[in-house]
Simulated scan of single mutants.
Amino acid sequence: MLKSLFIAGALALLASPAAAEVVERSADSFTLRYARSMETSAGDIVMALESIGDWWDSAHTYSGDASNLSIRLEPGACLCERLADGSFFEHGRVILLDDDHLSLNAPLGPLKGRTSKAELTFSWPDAGATDVTVVMTFRVEGTGVGAWADGVDAVMQGQYARLIHHVEYGETPDA
């Protein structure tokens, strides 16, 4: 556990400068937002999102292996995880994909069954510019979920740092 926290902290530092914060919080909702400007293209971002199993932290999967995650970038597609018994677990669904963002209905981990809304959005609004700002926003609503904001923020900061590392270097963040 300590090793995982150390790696997550180190990856967060590697991704700096990035804006990461709980931007809104109430008893029954929270919004997390992470942003970083970098030299990349929309195509590189889309390829990284599509290869989620290459950068997602295996510690935050049910199978213990992020390579079991898959997603097709088309509306209605499943962000799914293949389990050891051959079944699949649905972490989320693609609800929107266009030229500069991807949105999923994604009540991740312990949020499953406790939320009325869990929208995870990745955007790159200035694609085509020399520097592209890669933004990840997670909007969660549900009775009492506001108390979970800091814990979810810690996990999602690590996931965002891993995504940025993958976009920049095209490799698994902890390889």
Rank of each mutant, 00 (worst) to 15 (best):
M1G: 14
K3T: 14
A8V: 05
G9L: 13
A10C: 04
A15S: 10
P17W: 08
P17R: 10
P17Y: 11
A18G: 02
A18K: 02
A18V: 01
A20P: 00
E21V: 04
V22F: 10
V23G: 03
R25Q: 15
A27F: 04
S29P: 04
S29W: 01
L32W: 04
R33Y: 02
S37H: 08
E39G: 13
T40R: 00
A42W: 06
G43Q: 12
G43T: 14
I45N: 03
M47H: 15
M47V: 07
S51L: 09
G53A: 05
W56M: 02
D57N: 13
H60L: 11
H60P: 01
Y62R: 14
S63Y: 06
G64C: 08
D65H: 13
D65R: 15
A66M: 10
A66T: 03
L69N: 01
I71T: 04
R72V: 09
E74I: 10
G76I: 08
G76D: 07
A77D: 11
C78T: 10
E81D: 05
R82I: 06
D85V: 05
D85P: 00
F89Q: 12
E90Q: 10
R93E: 12
V94T: 07
I95R: 14
L96S: 13
D99N: 11
D99A: 15
D100W: 06
H101R: 14
N105I: 02
N105F: 09
P110I: 12
P110M: 14
P110G: 13
L111Q: 06
K112P: 00
R114D: 00
K117M: 08
K117Y: 03
K117P: 03
K117N: 06
A118F: 11
L120N: 03
L120G: 07
F122E: 04
F122H: 06
F122L: 08
S123Q: 13
S123K: 04
W124I: 08
A127F: 09
A129Y: 00
D131M: 09
V132K: 08
V135W: 01
V135E: 05
T137P: 01
F138H: 15
E141L: 07
G142S: 07
T143E: 14
G144T: 12
G144Y: 12
V145E: 07
G146M: 05
W148R: 15
A149S: 14
A149I: 04
D150I: 13
D150V: 15
D150L: 15
D153T: 12
A154R: 14
A154H: 09
G158I: 06
G158Q: 00
Q159M: 10
Y160T: 06
A161Q: 02
R162S: 02
R162W: 02
V167D: 07
T172V: 10
